[in-house]
Design a binder for these strands. Structure first.
Ligand SMILES: [Mn+2]
Ligand SMILES: [Mn+2]
Ligand SMILES: [Mn+2]
Ligand SMILES: [Mn+2]
Lengths: 218, 218
DNA sequence: ATTTATTTTTAGACAAGACTAAAAATTTAT
DNA sequence: ATAAATTTTTAGTCTTGTCTAAAAATAAAT
């Protein structure tokens, strides 16, 4: 049995290990969990005890296969519930996270399975993030940051790196959604700002925006 | 803020206070919560501290209005989720309780409200129990036990008193569901057994059954 | 009206998860 | 290579919710 707190830590470790796939530090975990390093150490010991992470004092942690499966199962539920909230209960994409954070811990194989079917086996959540399959495979996506796209190219918005309500509301305000076509009109090297064209409307964005929006080349 | 455990205790007290609307004893609470009397006492003190119950040592407890509202809100969510599971995710009525027991604690006004709308504002859960409205009014129902119905009368099944999986599966097996028409063919005074006619098929039931099935006169 | 049985409360302990303060290990800088 | 700074772990405490064992109050029986 994995407790609610343990699930949240496993999820944090999974996400931290994604890019820099070295071992995850105690401090990084504490920061992500909004807690103190000493609390993180305590929890790491419990997870290690239960065989969910590999741990050596002072050396950081790695998820074991068992831990990875547990984390991915929680992420699967989180993203399915997000789809449910948006598709069926008319939530906006900036309103779903907090609720999904609770729903992801509901324990019922049948519930998850039936929810998946009810939603017609979605492959992406409302923020463009992939939904793992029931056996724990996380689909890999070839998404690239808008900041990396060359001048004058066309691309399509397929996801967000930052899914905070503030950023999502900014995108809403400027009519950027998943599937929106974006043209890079110009790039300013001084401050990394960019001028885009969206539905024939020009838009100047800062580097904070271009570094948090995933696109694919059209 | 009311914790998950506190919510479960409040719900237990609410249900215990229903029929015998005197004060609820510590032992009764402990038994319903599958815990020890000493644990119940501890929790009662916390609830009293928070103004959710009225409590005098050795005299039992009553929900305050604040406590009643909290309990009814949890019951509302429990029953809405049960409807969701049966109507949308094709759960059987004997499979929903355990999952609803978890879902009832999810905290989001918007979620409950949107779920209610999505389900088309149901007034009864899959077991025939009434769903309280958003402001905490529990609809009263004029249901009567099958055991009280006179010989040769017709009635319709509208609910269950015992909603355990075992009883619900017994009803499934004998084709008794909400809305099923039942005719009392005869009553045996010796053991309180009854002979029914359901869809032209005769069925002999024990007093255990007739005392756990709610009907209304046709 | 006492004695006996039952119910309820207290006292003390434990596990989970978090915190603060201090010690130990590791990393960075000189 | 040492010293300084940072990270990580330990030690000890707290809160929530549970438990057992014992004491106190209430209810039942003689
Ligand atoms: Mn969570
Ligand atoms: Mn998401
Ligand atoms: Mn519950
Ligand atoms: Mn029910």
């Amino acid at each position: 049995m994995v407790t609610l707190s343990e699930e949240n830590y496993l999820k944090a470790i999974y996400h931290l290990a994604l890019r820099n796939d070295e071992k995850v530090s105690t401090n990084a975990i504490a920061q992500k969990m909004q807690t103190k390093a000493s609390s993180a150490t305590d929890m790491i010991k419990k997870l290690s005890e239960k065989g969910l992470v590999d741990y050596q004092k002072y050396k950081g942690v790695n998820l074991t296969e068992k831990g990875r499966l547990s984390a991915v199962s929680v992420i699967r539920k989180h993203r399915l519930w997000e789809v449910f909230l948006v598709d069926k209960l008319s939530f906006n994409w900036d309103e779903v996270h907090e609720v999904a954070e609770q729903l992801e811990h509901i324990k019922s194989e049948k519930l998850t399975q039936q929810l998946d079917a009810f939603l017609n086996y979605p492959t992406k959540d409302p923020h463009g993030d992939p939904i793992p399959d029931p056996s724990g495979n996380m689909p890999s996506t070839e998404k690239v940051l808008l900041a990396k796209i060359e001048n004058h190219k066309h691309c399509i918005c397929i996801g967000v790196k930052d899914s905070s309500a503030e950023f999502l509301q900014y995108l809403d305000k400027h009519n950027i959604a998943l599937g929106t076509e974006i043209t890079i009109v110009s790039k300013e090297s001084f401050d990394e700002s960019m001028t885009l064209k969206i539905n024939k409307t020009p838009l100047v964005i800062s580097k904070e925006v271009s570094h948090n929006l995933f696109v694919k080349i059209n």
